[in-house]
Amino acid sequence: MHRSLFNILSGRNTRQGLWGLPLLVALLISLWLTVETTQFATAENLFNLVAQAMPLIIAAIGQLVVVLIGGLDLSVGSVISFTTAVLALDQPAIVLIPAVFVLAALIGLINGLAITRFNVHPIIATLSTQYIVLGITRILRPVSGGTVPEIVIAAVSGSFLGIPYPVFWGIMVILAAWKLLYGSRYGLHLFAIGGGIASGAESAARNFGVSDRRNIILAYVICSCFAAVAGVFLAGRIVSGDPNVGLLFELDTVTAVALGGTQLSGGIGSLHGTVIGALVMALLANGMNLANVSPFVQTAIKGGILLAVVGLQSRKKMGL
């Protein structure tokens, strides 16, 4: 019993990664905020917090899928901005909402094809699409403005039984991701491919009959689509299109994923860890806002957290 508890907390001998520790951190921050401030432990603030954290949670789940196969998607932030810009194009919702997902899937497809077919390093491929998509977004909407369809705003601003809609949407997205990662053949293949890549045997999964190329392409498509969901969410909250809303989001998602105990080298990680990681980020942002920390310092602190959590992971490969 003692041993297994230790294993869970340290993330040793497990495919889930170290997720007990971030949970502890999240609880500690909540406790501290409850004691220090009167505004924190109100139902209103907590629901608000969850609603604020939702885009990050959703985008981080997408990032998790890519990280599990040992990749990294740096185009997440641009896809989010792009989604809000497309949604604010002043067209009927019935056209815009499917269009957003088709376009996001296309971006993911370009990433996946460049990586698998043309042998481009994931970081370089997604870095280029980050710039290309950002450029297109700035052409569509140089400064923030426009209005997103009414239905998108309604979907994120209402509440049911006192619980805001975003909470329900979030639960649905998490359940879908749970089914994808733990209840489908695809999820198993993801862990198989990532485990092989992490231990330096890139053809390991292929040798067991798992098509790595197709699954890797699909992982990037899924990541972009999750980013688009996060973008729709944000668009509903800010009511307009904004070319800068997704700025640095890719790093926030990587931080959340790494904070949740997922190894960036691939194969080890968990959905609940990622959700906890994203919640820790949201709690920190909430706490720093309540403590009046300058937004510039908040950015620097986020960078420091990223450096610390990734620095604590050990891996074999050096360099990129």
């Binding site: 990294l72 740096l74 970081i123 640095l248 790093l251 990587v254 960036l264 950015t299 620097a300 986020k302 960078g303 420091g304 990223l306 450096l307 990734v310 620095g311 992971q313 050990s314 891996r315 074999k316 490969k317 050096m318 360099g319 990129l320």
Partner: peptide, 15 residues
């Protein structure tokens, strides 16, 4: 420490 170079240098830049 063998941390991913992209993450380290981006984080340093942000800080």
């Amino acid at each position: 420490r063998r941390v991913s170079a992209v993450i380290v240098t981006l984080a340093v830049s942000i800080i």
